[in-house]
Nucleic acid binder design. Structure first.
Lengths: 341, 341
DNA sequence: TATTTTAGCTAAATCGATTAAGCAATTATT
DNA sequence: AATAATTGCTTAATCGATTTAGCTAAAATA
């Protein structure tokens, strides 16, 4: 069961390994290898169980048939589903996926990019954090194929796949307003990033368009690294007399999950007089037993498109046309219907 | 920003690249490189921003500092969390993770193993399906480092990390019985695999030990590929007069999730007279508003241990001692307390 | 002093593929 | 018939590291 190399075949047939390489890469015609020889080589290769050594090839060509994937945390179901979609699409192109989690820590992203480049991945799909810009700019300068996914930088012209954060938030909050909510709290996180700013903008705009005044005390921020405690504090505040809300919009799935847990444990009664909603969804939203609106991101599509973009860039090299793909989000009602009286 | 190679440094310093290689690998002493030279080289390497080319090194040494990970489906939260834990532990050893999903289809596992080996991953962590045995045996024959995770083969002596499927199921069902359930349904899936057989054994044994007769009509099987429909049929059956159950044990997280969804939509009233439980847990169990017992697998530990085992095997080569690590599972109550009157 | 040992370094092979350049024999063109 | 073009294949360089074998000069030993 020793590995069979090009050279082994060439020796067996008494021809050069160049010839074998031509045939095995399907370049017989182009390289004017005779029909008979081509067949002889193919037969022998099959007989000997030849499989090209990816590393050797990668070393020579600089192409590894592997793409790198950098996300905040693959154990978050949103990213896990993205990863799966990316894997499936990559497989169609004969690629594998090597991944790493950044935990929203920029230095980790930088390190991962370094290692992935060093391992000669053909391209990198990144869900970047705000401070990752410097690393991304390096990639761009070096013409290294990459695609930004889910997150992005406003002024950057590069391959990007994202959802319509503004419109999605606008639509969900419009639904809340139409259902009668007047005091909707907004739970912010990662507030510096472009996609989060867009979400907040959606919230503000829909209020303006609906002639509902926003009470800025209801816009709350929590830190990614301390979500548990922060959310509890924030929610407790919301139920104090002076803030008394009738709706909450969580700006992403994780804040929603933590928030809902706290609400169920401490404000169960209030849940029926509250319109809850969030951007993005977990599976669990299907199991909630109180009104809930969640904006579903087209995860499959996002993953697929990001791979397609990177494949195009890998193929076309520096002549690719950077594209920005914005996908719509759709919201759905869960639990029983809205409980505002 | 061109890449700096060993040769570049050697030319710059007017010495051989062999020397540079020795120094950069920390083998100065062993290879009797003088202190002054060592420092000179290190300084120059730093100045020039040298980074070893992993591919070239991998090509020469056959070690890629990458491990392969094969699971049924990385978008299942159980596997996603495993993947994250594996990633973290691998990072500690300076390794990256390349992954692939098998969808419980054996041919996919085979293909992934092929590709991963070809890409010279240093070892493979696999959550195998029943029919994967043949591929696993090949790995063993070739002395290729691998660890079986979560799933296993009864008669095989190889590195394995799993949970105590028997005892976990036993304990959970004992709790149900102690709470007064007499007719507990068992929802089976992937029933041919060793770990699933062990779970069923736990269910049967605890009944025997508790002197409760098992009604074999209550042991239901669903197919992995058609879980949605199958579960619905099975659950509908359970509520017919002749089977009328007072408890359900789902044998894994996915059946539980699909089952609970169906129960909530169609048997909401009955939920309060039913003891529900499952092996393994999703996040969502924390949000359930009815009694539920779930056996929590020590996912972090499982991932960590599997990496540790494979690292040991990689290091020791054929002289490693295969270990079987069995971790306990712990169950917890969720929702309000058991509702059996 | 003659020989052995050691310190410190280098040349060249190797891993397995890809590819630029080129050679010899045959066929086509003028 | 002389020249040009084409066919079919090969040689050797290359990617960037690791590693075996070995060389030279200085130090140690006999």
């Amino acid at each position: 069961m020793k590995k069979v190399s090009l050279e082994d075949i060439s020796k067996e047939l008494g021809v050069s390994k160049t010839l074998i390489s031509f045939v095995m890469n399907g370049r017989s015609e182009e390289k004017r290898v005779s029909k008979e020889m081509t067949e002889k080589v193919l037969a022998k290769a099959k007989e000997m169980g030849y499989k090209a050594d990816y590393l050797a090839r990668a070393m020579r060509t600089g192409k590894s048939n592997t793409i790198g994937l950098i996300m905040a945390d693959i154990s978050n179901i949103f990213f896990a589903k993205l990863a799966r979609s990316i894997e499936d699409e990559a497989t169609k192109f004969g690629y594998n996926v090597i991944f790493g989690s950044s935990d929203e820590v920029s230095a980790k992203t930088g390190k991962l990019i370094d290692v992935f480049r060093n391992k000669k991945v053909d391209g990198i799909i990144i869900c970047p954090t705000t401070e990752d810009l410097k690393y991304i700019l390096n990639l761009q300068r070096d013409n290294y194929p990459f695609v930004l996914l889910d997150r992005y930088f406003s002024n950057m012209k590069c391959n990007t796949v994202l959802v319509d954060n503004y419109q999605g938030t606008y639509d969900i909050n419009l639904e809340l307003l139409n259902n009668g909510s007047k005091r909707i709290a907004y739970i912010n996180v990662n507030s510096e990033s472009a996609h989060m700013k867009e979400r907040l903008r959606g919230y503000l705009e829909v209020h303006k368009d609906s002639n509902v005044k926003v009470d800025h005390k209801l816009i709350k921020s929590v830190s990614f690294r301390n979500i548990g405690k922060d959310i509890e504090t924030v929610i407790d505040d919301l139920f104090k007399k002076e803030e008394r809300v009738d709706g909450i919009f969580f700006s992403n799935n994780h804040t929603a999950y933590v928030g809902i847990k706290h609400l169920l444990n401490n404000y169960k009664e209030e849940l029926n007089h509250l319109s809850l909603s969030c951007f993005d969804s977990y599976d669990y939203t299907e199991l909630l037993q109180f009104p809930f609106i969640s904006g579903k991101q087209p995860i499959e599509e996002m993953g697929k498109k990001s791979v397609d973009l990177i494949m195009e860039q890998i193929e076309k090299g520096e002549f690719f046309e950077p594209k920005k793909i914005v996908l719509p989000i759709q919201f759905s009602h869960f639990g029983n219907k809205m409980g505002i009286e």
